[in-house]
């Protein structure tokens, strides 16, 4: 059984009488341990798909099964718990809380998960060690570089040891070198066996993942566009 089962999901927005199909009958299965990228041009519905799969949003039609649970049956409280325990998010704009220190930012998911303060500290330190930032715990996000901030966000996404990590354009706000370092980090996490779903519009980035899904106008593209997927430049890596 797949870890994430997306079945016939549509998301329709109504804007002033006009119907916008952000997602149109999308079905995807993602297995545990997969490293997958969702690629497509701007406005194609990548973020929408990620948000629906990540329990941040609900589909207009269709069903999502996450780790065996149908999420349309879950109460808002249960959804919050799923987001807290099973999912880690990494966003393009880092979304760290500026008033909290690095350590407090990483501890935040556990504050809502209900861990003791000593446990929170310990696990947050572990997560920060993983992204090599255990020496900056007392700093504020504004005192860090963009890449460092994104690493803090990754540590925050990892701290509750989630089943799936969703990353929406995680390098979109970074220069190519720093972006490369972040991607290295994802690759490393993938080797450790985590499920990672990487949303991007950049074929070079999509090229690092063993599996790619292409979205165009809210639909899964049947054939992978080789140029867009960057397959013409990067050889497909063997699946681990």
């Amino acid at each position: 059984m797949a870890l994430v089962e997306i079945r016939n999901v549509s998301k329709i927005y109504h804007l002033g009488g006009e119907e916008i199909r952000a997602l149109d009958d999308v079905s995807v299965d993602i297995d545990g341990g997969e490293f997958i990228s969702i690629i497509g041009p701007s406005g194609s519905g990548k973020s929408t798909l990620m948000q629906i799969a990540g329990c941040l949003d609900t589909p207009t039609r269709g069903t999502i099964k996450l780790d065996g649970a149908m999420i349309q049956d879950a109460s808002p409280r249960q959804l919050a718990a799923i987001r807290n325990r099973k999912i880690g998010f990494v966003f393009q704009f880092f979304n760290l809380l500026p008033k909290l220190t690095v350590l407090q930012n990483v501890e935040l998911p556990m504050v809502y998960g209900g861990a003791s303060s000593s446990e929170r500290r310990e696990r947050a330190m572990q997560a920060l060690k993983l992204v090599n930032l255990d020496n900056r715990t007392k700093h504020r996000p504004s005192q860090l570089s963009g890449g460092q901030q994104q690493r803090v966000a990754i540590a925050r996404a990892l701290v509750n040891d989630p089943k799936i990590i969703f990353a929406d354009e995680p390098t979109g706000n970074l220069d190519s070198h720093t972006g490369e370092l972040i991607l290295q980090l994802f690759r490393q996490l993938s080797r450790e066996g985590r499920t990672i779903i990487l949303v991007t519009h950049d074929p070079e980035i999509a090229a690092i993942t063993p599996r790619r899904i292409e979205i165009r106008d809210g639909k899964i593209a049947d054939t992978v566009d080789a140029t867009l997927a960057g397959l013409d430049r990067f050889p497909l890596q063997p699946t681990p």
């Binding site: 941040l56 409280r77 718990a81 998010f89 979304n95 809380l97 998911p109 809502y112 998960g113």
Partner: peptide, 15 residues
């Protein structure tokens, strides 16, 4: 943004 982020990482409506 802060509130949205808190919700995304597991804050409930009640929280």
């Amino acid at each position: 943004r802060e509130i949205g982020l808190r919700k995304a990482i597991g804050a409930t409506t009640a929280d």
